[in-house]
């Protein structure tokens, strides 16, 4: 009797917990607002960066210069995880890097410093991103440097190219 009532009681509590806990999941509206966005790449000069908003996250679109593309493999020694999933710029189209502008440490916005010149945080700066909050460094493709607070590379959001149009949110 005691066991039966305990089991029935536990099942009832668990059953009622489902709707209450599920209510905390993103609503249908939140899911719809997370749909993909488009960007015209033809207006972006080499060396320039555009910031597009997707799912309320700043997405950095970097048009890499020839020099930057040449420099990226030479940074393999300095970054924590040199493996490139897709190409030098971590995209199918190596001229562009598509990166989530959210530091993988504690979600600050890393700043874009494309210049190749000595910086306060690095004497051999080859261009990249620097996070002013806690000093994390990333190269121009968003790969994280060794010995900084950020644990992983800046994320690449799902994206695809259609001619000159970039679609963020759909792979």
């Amino acid at each position: 009797m005691q066991i039966t009532s305990s089991v029935v009681g536990a099942v009832t509590v668990a059953g009622f917990a489902v709707p209450f806990l599920s209510a905390w999941q993103p609503s249908e509206r939140a899911k719809a607002l997370g749909a993909s966005v488009k960007y015209d790449l033809s207006k972006l000069e080499p060396g320039a960066m555009a910031v597009v908003e997707w799912r309320r996250t700043p997405i950095f679109i970097v048009h890499q210069t020839t020099e930057a593309i040449k420099n990226l493999p030479s940074l393999n020694q300095k970054v924590a995880n040199p493996a490139l999933e897709e190409g030098v710029s971590r995209t199918i189209n190596e001229k562009f890097s598509i990166i989530k502008g959210v530091c993988t440490h504690l979600s600050c916005a890393p700043k874009y410093y494309p210049e190749i010149e000595p910086k306060a945080w690095d004497e051999n700066w080859k261009g990249g991103f620097f996070c002013p909050c806690h000093g994390s460094k990333f190269d121009l493709a968003g790969r994280v440097y060794k010995n900084v607070p950020a644990p992983t590379n800046l994320e690449v959001p799902p994206h695809s190219f259609e001619g000159d149009t970039l679609i963020i949110g759909e792979a």
Binding site: Q25, A30, L106, S107, P151
Partner: peptide, 27 residues
């Protein structure tokens, strides 16, 4: 709040979905 909530996202395996669940949104 972003900094603190991203701490939950740092928990291995369940972190990301836990963070989305707490936020009720992807952000």
């Amino acid at each position: 709040a972003n900094v603190i909530l991203s701490l939950f996202g740092a928990i291995p395996f369940i972190g990301e979905s836990l963070q989305v669940w707490i936020q009720g949104d992807y952000v």
